[in-house]
Simulated assay, not measured.
Amino acid sequence: MTETFISLLSILIGIIGANSIGFFLKKYSFGIVGNTIAGVFGSILVMKTFGRLGFNPLAIMENGTFNGLLFSINCIVSFLGGVFGLIAIRLIKSKLNKE
């Protein structure tokens, strides 16, 4: 695997996280397109913010070797990033609609 493939896979996992939460919790859903956009931005935001702790794609593929533990942490954080992105957008929308 390359760093680019791991990054794209992380974004895909974030999309899956946002769409799955939107499917199970209907009040947070923005439809397929809205959930996908929230998953992309949530995953990227969380990975860029917390990836410096050592589970970014460059650390996973350091010296050409694959680190499975860091990859699994990356997948979990990407999934949670998609979920948090969807929840954050829902909170922002509810705040804007109150006024």
Results as ranks from 00 to 15, higher is better:
residue 1 M to Y: 15
residue 1 M to S: 15
residue 3 E to V: 08
residue 3 E to Q: 14
residue 6 I to C: 06
residue 6 I to H: 03
residue 6 I to T: 03
residue 6 I to W: 01
residue 6 I to E: 10
residue 7 S to A: 14
residue 8 L to Y: 12
residue 9 L to D: 05
residue 12 L to F: 10
residue 13 I to E: 13
residue 13 I to W: 04
residue 13 I to Y: 01
residue 14 G to V: 01
residue 14 G to N: 00
residue 14 G to C: 08
residue 16 I to P: 03
residue 16 I to W: 09
residue 17 G to S: 06
residue 17 G to I: 00
residue 18 A to L: 02
residue 18 A to M: 11
residue 20 S to P: 09
residue 21 I to T: 09
residue 22 G to L: 04
residue 23 F to T: 07
residue 23 F to L: 04
residue 24 F to M: 12
residue 25 L to I: 15
residue 25 L to R: 08
residue 26 K to M: 10
residue 27 K to G: 09
residue 27 K to H: 12
residue 27 K to I: 03
residue 29 S to R: 12
residue 29 S to G: 10
residue 29 S to F: 02
residue 30 F to M: 14
residue 30 F to W: 06
residue 30 F to R: 04
residue 31 G to D: 02
residue 32 I to W: 15
residue 32 I to E: 00
residue 32 I to Q: 02
residue 33 V to E: 07
residue 33 V to N: 13
residue 33 V to Q: 11
residue 34 G to S: 10
residue 36 T to W: 06
residue 37 I to G: 09
residue 38 A to I: 01
residue 38 A to M: 01
residue 38 A to D: 01
residue 38 A to T: 05
residue 39 G to Q: 00
residue 40 V to I: 08
residue 41 F to A: 04
residue 42 G to F: 01
residue 42 G to P: 02
residue 43 S to D: 01
residue 44 I to D: 09
residue 44 I to G: 11
residue 45 L to N: 05
residue 45 L to H: 08
residue 45 L to C: 07
residue 47 M to N: 09
residue 47 M to K: 07
residue 48 K to H: 13
residue 51 G to E: 04
residue 52 R to Y: 14
residue 52 R to A: 14
residue 53 L to S: 06
residue 54 G to F: 02
residue 54 G to N: 03
residue 54 G to D: 03
residue 54 G to M: 00
residue 55 F to Q: 10
residue 56 N to W: 02
residue 56 N to H: 09
residue 57 P to T: 09
residue 57 P to F: 00
residue 58 L to P: 11
residue 59 A to C: 13
residue 59 A to M: 14
residue 60 I to R: 00
residue 60 I to S: 02
residue 61 M to S: 10
residue 62 E to W: 12
residue 63 N to M: 04
residue 63 N to A: 11
residue 63 N to T: 06
residue 64 G to S: 10
residue 64 G to P: 05
residue 66 F to A: 12
residue 66 F to S: 11
residue 68 G to C: 04
residue 68 G to R: 11
residue 68 G to S: 15
residue 69 L to S: 10
residue 71 F to N: 04
residue 71 F to Q: 12
residue 71 F to R: 08
residue 72 S to Q: 12
residue 72 S to D: 15
residue 72 S to E: 14
residue 74 N to Q: 10
residue 75 C to V: 02
residue 75 C to Y: 08
residue 75 C to R: 11
residue 75 C to P: 12
residue 76 I to M: 07
residue 76 I to T: 09
residue 76 I to L: 10
residue 77 V to A: 09
residue 78 S to R: 01
residue 80 L to D: 07
residue 81 G to F: 02
residue 81 G to L: 03
residue 82 G to L: 05
residue 83 V to P: 00
residue 83 V to R: 05
residue 85 G to V: 01
residue 85 G to F: 07
residue 85 G to R: 10
residue 86 L to F: 03
residue 86 L to I: 02
residue 87 I to E: 05
residue 88 A to E: 08
residue 89 I to S: 07
residue 91 L to Y: 11
residue 91 L to H: 10
residue 91 L to W: 11
residue 92 I to K: 08
residue 93 K to I: 07
residue 93 K to V: 11
residue 94 S to P: 13
residue 95 K to C: 14
residue 96 L to R: 08
residue 96 L to F: 15
residue 97 N to H: 12
residue 97 N to K: 14
residue 98 K to Q: 06
residue 98 K to W: 03
residue 99 E to V: 15
residue 99 E to C: 14
